[in-house]
Each structure stands twice: as structure tokens, then as C-alpha cells.
């Protein structure tokens, strides 16, 4: 580990000011599960860590029929997974949480931290994008609500301004006839970074698909929506021919790269397989 100074502000205002005044090399600490790795592997030069755990009000998980699920910046993946709010409503997010690293890591990693790291392979992002999640922030001049699909500026980069803090994520309640799934591709069954992750969120009425959102992870600089794939699904009866066409289209819509985990070609092929399988799994999952 490299040395750094540690700070524990007790309000959002103080946290925001600290980060701005400490300048370069100052970072927010949420769960730390990624940040500490980056410090130890010298991927990030950190001089100051600003831990927001003493800031009150960020540890809530709430549910309302009108506004859906809302969880604060301190909520860990493990807490959200165990909260019971996901059952039957967000099976895709639940699957993503279950596939995130290990139980031990999930007890420390926050969902907001996983999102803010803006990794294209982060497990929680595809389902949250597919479900239309919105980011809530604090800024000295007034907070913002940012749709998650517009939150990322590139790998590791978000649209957050200096000193702006994510305080919560809201996920709208599932509509009638909602079907959702998340599938992750890795060589092992656990402790994997996704080679490809596909989340789908569908609305189906009387066998007819009335809404579809498809989010593709680890196959672009950021997690991608696949609008043309969605267009193929919407209005269809989701039969085998449609699924194959959607899979083909998703393969066109992604922009993967090659690295030690897989080649671009293989990733593209898996986007097709996983998109088809995710739709099938979503239809099986009880909404």
C-alpha cells in the first residue's frame, strides 16, 4: 500500500469542500474494494481519501410503489442483495449483484461505487441502465438527477463535476408484465470480471413485447444501450426468429476490443448468444 491521508467529513458540504480544496490526488472513498486495489497496483496516485461513511442519510434502502427503489451511496452490494426489495422486481440487478466478485467483497463494495468507477465491465451497470435508473447528486450549487444512460463519459470517466457527490440511485418500479434478466459471461463461475454482460428489461402483454431495453457490458468504452436491437424486440411476439434477429443486431451494435480476456470477435459473438439467452431467461423469470 502507498501512504495517504485519511479524512472523515460529517456532511455532504464538508465532503465536497474537502475534495475540492485538497485538489489533485484526492478521492472519495465509498466501499474501497476497487480503489485500494488501484492504489496497491499503482494505477492511481492517491494522496487523500475522503470517506463519506459518516455523512448521515446515505445508508437507506427504500421502496415505494410510485417511485420505485432508491438506495443511498453507502449501501453495499450485499445489503441491497439481501434487502428483499429486488425479489420479483429486479431479478436482473439481483443476478448482477450475485455475480459481483465474492460475498466478502460484496459486504464492502457499494453499488454506487461500482457504478461511479465507470468500468464498462461493471456488473451492476447493465441492469440499472436497462431498468432506467437515475443518479442523484449533491453539488454546492444544487444537486442533479442524471439518467444513468447519460452518466458515463468514457472508461473510468463520468459526467460528475469536481466536488459533486453521488448520493443515491433511483430505479423506477417495474411496469406491468415486466420481464428482466442479466447474464454474465466469464471463464469461471465466480470471481470473474465480465467478458460480456447483457441485461434485458422487457414488457410483455398477451405475448406481445410492448417495451424493451437492452444494455451491453464490456463491449464498448462504456456500457451501451442497444436501441436497434430493442426496436426489433418491441412489437414482436419474441419468437425464435425475432430472437435470432435481435441477437444479430446486438452483435452489430457493440464495439468490443481484444484483450487478454477475450478477442473482439469472440466478445461480439457472445453478445449475440447472451442477448438471445437473456431474453429467453427473462421470459422464464416470473415478473
Amino acid at each position: 500500500m502507498r501512504r495517504f491521508e485519511y479524512h472523515e467529513p460529517t456532511s455532504l458540504k464538508e465532503a465536497s469542500q474537502l475534495l475540492t480544496s485538497l485538489g489533485e490526488g484526492a478521492y472519495f472513498l465509498a466501499g474501497g474494494t476497487d480503489l485500494f486495489v488501484e492504489i496497491r497496483e499503482r494505477l492511481r496516485q492517491v494522496r487523500h481519501l475522503v470517506n463519506i461513511k459518516r455523512v448521515p442519510g446515505l445508508d437507506q434502502i427504500e421502496w415505494s410503489d410510485q417511485t420505485g427503489l432508491r438506495f443511498g451511496a453507502q449501501v453495499t452490494a450485499g445489503q441491497l442483495e439481501a434487502s428483499g426489495y429486488l425479489n420479483g422486481r429486479y431479478p436482473n440487478l439481483r443476478a448482477a449483484l450475485k455475480a459481483l466478485a465474492s460475498i466478502q467483497v460484496r459486504n464492502r463494495a457499494t453499488v454506487v461505487g461500482n457504478v461511479c468507477r465507470a468500468s464498462p465491465s461493471a456488473d451492476t451497470i447493465p441492469p440499472l441502465i436497462a431498468d432506467g435508473a437515475v443518479i442523484e447528486t449533491y453539488r454546492p450549487g444544487g444537486g442533479r438527477h442524471i439518467p444513468l444512460a447519460e452518466f458515463f463519459a468514457g472508461p473510468g470517466r463520468t459526467v460528475l463535476e469536481p466536488g459533486e457527490i453521488v448520493i443515491a440511485v433511483t430505479v423506477p418500479p417495474p411496469a406491468q408484465g415486466s420481464h428482466r434478466a442479466y447474464l454474465k459471461h466469464g471463464r469461471r463461475k465466480a470471481m470473474e470480471l465480465a467478458t460480456v454482460g447483457v441485461a434485458v428489461s422487457l414488457e410483455v402483454e398477451d405475448g406481445l413485447c410492448t417495451g424493451a431495453r437492452v444494455a451491453l457490458g464490456a463491449v464498448g468504452p462504456v456500457v451501451l444501450r442497444a436501441p436497434q436491437t430493442e426496436a426489433i424486440l418491441v412489437g414482436s411476439r419474441l419468437d425464435a426468429a425475432v430472437l435470432n434477429a435481435a441477437a444479430e443486431q446486438a452483435m452489430q451494435e457493440c464495439t468490443p476490443i481484444s484483450n487478454v480476456r477475450a478477442s473482439a470477435e469472440y466478445r461480439r459473438e457472445m453478445v449475440g448468444v447472451l442477448t438471445r439467452r437473456a431474453v429467453m431467461l427473462a421470459l422464464e423469470e416470473a415478473a
Binding site: R187, R188, M191, E192, L193
Partner: peptide, 8 residues
């Protein structure tokens, strides 16, 4: 240990 993949 994440990218060197031992069976777990």
C-alpha cells in the same frame, strides 16, 4: 488472481 484463472 482474477485474470489468471484457477478453478475455484
Amino acid at each position: 488472481l482474477v485474470d489468471y484463472k484457477m478453478p475455484l
